[in-house]
């Protein structure tokens, strides 16, 4: 993308800011302040890896799979929106040892699960929006997926 493509948006933003036409809502600023508490010092951020081409676009009731990998861990994360709620299922591989915990995080909540022997995990009924999966292994740095946006 060239500079010219996004210049109009920046100019429009400047005009509106000067006019006070559309100030940032308080809840947006609050969410921004709260985001700092979501950092995981020492965590390894898992970048998106190869995504399976056969999987279609996400839509109501249809899962989308995202693969993340870092520090010897692969996290397959499957997100599904059903009736406005977000379900997250997935698999950590290689198969996790004892005491490995998977935490599925949204900006407002976190739910921990012990994965099965085969590394499967699931959390249902989350609010849609941003979500991240963290794999906590004893004696190792946590591995966190990049934040993923899931909404209708």
């Amino acid at each position: 993308m060239t500079d010219d493509d996004h210049l109009p948006a920046y100019l429009l933003a400047a005009l509106r800011m000067a006019a006070g036409a559309d100030p940032v809502p308080a809840r947006v600023s609050q969410a921004a302040r709260d985001a700092f508490a979501l950092r995981l010092p020492g965590a390894v951020v898992a970048a998106p890896y190869e995504i399976e081409p056969a999987v279609g676009a996400r839509s109501e009731g249809r899962p989308a799979i995202h693969r993340f990998a870092a520090d010897g861990v692969t996290l397959d994360v499957e997100v599904t929106l059903t009736d406005g709620r977000l379900d997250v299922a997935g698999q950590v591989s290689p198969a996790p040892g004892a005491d490995t915990l998977i935490e599925v995080r949204t900006p407002d909540t976190g739910r921990s699960r012990a994965p099965s022997d085969t590394g499967h995990f699931a959390v249902t009924g989350l609010p849609p929006g941003w979500v991240s999966v963290v794999c906590r292994r004893p004696g190792r740095a946590p591995v966190a997926t990049r934040w993923l946006h899931v909404r209708d």
Binding site: A35, F36, L38
Partner: peptide, 14 residues
């Protein structure tokens, strides 16, 4: 817009 802004802060966190 709220989601986009929140996303940018989350990218900053990570």
């Amino acid at each position: 817009a709220a989601d986009a802004v929140q996303g940018a802060w989350l990218r900053m966190v990570e």
